[in-house]
C-alpha cells in the first residue's frame, strides 16, 4: 500500500438525520468504491451512520440514498457492541 496506489481518503459521516456530515477520520483505498465500503466497515460498525462521504484530494464521493439499507441495517441488531448489553454484577465499580 503506497501513497500513489492506495491514496488517503477523508471520511465524513452523518450520524443521524438532521445533522450534517462530520469528519470522523481517514483510511486508505485504491479507489472510491472501495474507500466507501471500507469507510462503512471501519467507521460505522455501531450503526453510527446514515450517510458517508469519502473525499480524496479533490473529488467528493457520497453513498447514494438507495444503498442505505444494505449499508447500515446489518449493524442494527448487534447489541453486544454496546457496553450496556453486559450484565454487571451488583457492587462492581469502575467497569
Amino acid at each position: 500500500m503506497s501513497k500513489e496506489t492506495s491514496p488517503l481518503w477523508e471520511v465524513f459521516v452523518r450520524a443521524r438525520r438532521g445533522l450534517s456530515h462530520t469528519h470522523v477520520g481517514s483510511l486508505h483505498a485504491p479507489d472510491a468504491e472501495l474507500a466507501l465500503r471500507n469507510a462503512r466497515d471501519v467507521y460505522t460498525r455501531r450503526q453510527e451512520g446514515v450517510s458517508i462521504w469519502v473525499v480524496p484530494a479533490s473529488a467528493i464521493t457520497a453513498s447514494s440514498p438507495d444503498e442505505k439499507d444494505a449499508f447500515f441495517d446489518p449493524a442494527a441488531d448487534k447489541v453486544y457492541r454496546h457496553p450496556t448489553f453486559y450484565e454487571v454484577p451488583d457492587g462492581v465499580a469502575h467497569l
Partner: peptide, 9 residues
C-alpha cells in the same frame, strides 16, 4: 487491515 474488518462483519 480494512479488509480484516469487512470479513469480520
Amino acid at each position: 487491515m480494512e479488509e480484516d474488518i469487512a470479513l469480520a462483519n
